[in-house]
Computed example of a mutant assay.
Amino acid sequence: MIALLLALGSSLAYGCADFLGGLGARKAHVLRTVLVAAPASLAVELLLWPVLGASFSPSAAGWGVASGAASAAAFALLYQTLAIGPMNVLSPVAALVSAVLPVTVGLLQGEHLGTAGLLGLPLALVAVVLVSAGHGAGGARPSRTALLLAFGAGAAIALQLVFLHQTPPGSGVAPLIVGRAVSSAVTLTAAALLRRRLGPEKPVYAVSAAAGVLDSVANLLFLLAVRSGDLTVVAVITALYPAGTVLLARGVLAERIHRGQVVGLGTAAVAVSLLALT
């Protein structure tokens, strides 16, 4: 139950971070937003160091580097995917892949689910697709390139979660610090190379920083969740993060929640209830 609650908290934090990051990217180039969010994220993890501890063993550092590289790849692939569109097809593809791969890894590592879990897991996967599917481009079909990018984005997100799961339990927040440092370095390098394309607009500092803080909270809650529960359950609950984005968009921006998303939210509630019984 503790792992489930932590995973729900991680999912909510990821969804809020995505919402704020999206708001920031409307005002300035997304890389400018990330250039504010990344240091804020790293600052949170450094502040947590004295509280939760950090052991920079070779294993912790190695898996941290791997998760940071996967995080940077996920960012680049996901935004490229959504830029090509249609979002209402590609977003659920990426979300589903990001859930299925960690679940597969968990099962291959010997994790087992009870009857309630076997019912709740596929329901949660269906909910991931329904919640993340917007109205978007209607009946437009994605190109083969766009689909490949969506699979790549989902796989990169999944790898980040799997790599964090592999970190030593006693390493504290060391993998998060190393991973954030790596992903920040990649982002800074990309911004330097593309500086002429970033435009003159300044980022919304408070919103961008808040997105970074929430992303760090989400990563921490996910790490704590997989250290106290099964990757199969934690990963699929975390992948419900679009629910938080959808609800915030409704409350703050008055965006319409479509019928399929309402069904997805209800399905997610049922799935979480079943998984809580495992």
Results as ranks from 00 to 15, higher is better:
A17F: 11
A17V: 07
D18T: 14
D18G: 11
R32W: 06
V36Y: 07
L47T: 01
W49R: 14
S57P: 13
S57C: 11
S57V: 15
G64M: 04
S71C: 09
S71M: 08
S71D: 05
A72Q: 01
A76L: 11
Q80E: 11
T81M: 13
A83C: 00
G85N: 08
M87D: 02
V89T: 13
L90Y: 05
L96C: 13
L96E: 13
V105E: 09
G120V: 10
L123Q: 11
A124R: 01
S132M: 03
A133S: 14
G134V: 14
T145P: 12
A146W: 07
L147D: 11
L147K: 04
A150L: 06
A153K: 02
G154S: 06
A158W: 01
L161V: 13
F163C: 12
G170N: 09
L176P: 10
L176K: 03
L176Q: 05
A192L: 10
G199V: 00
P200Q: 07
P200D: 15
E201C: 04
A209K: 04
A218P: 03
L221F: 15
L223S: 14
T232R: 11
I237F: 12
T245Q: 03
V246K: 03
L247T: 12
L248H: 12
A249P: 01
R250Q: 05
G260F: 10
G260D: 10
G260R: 14
L265R: 14
G266P: 08
S273W: 10
L277M: 14
T278S: 12
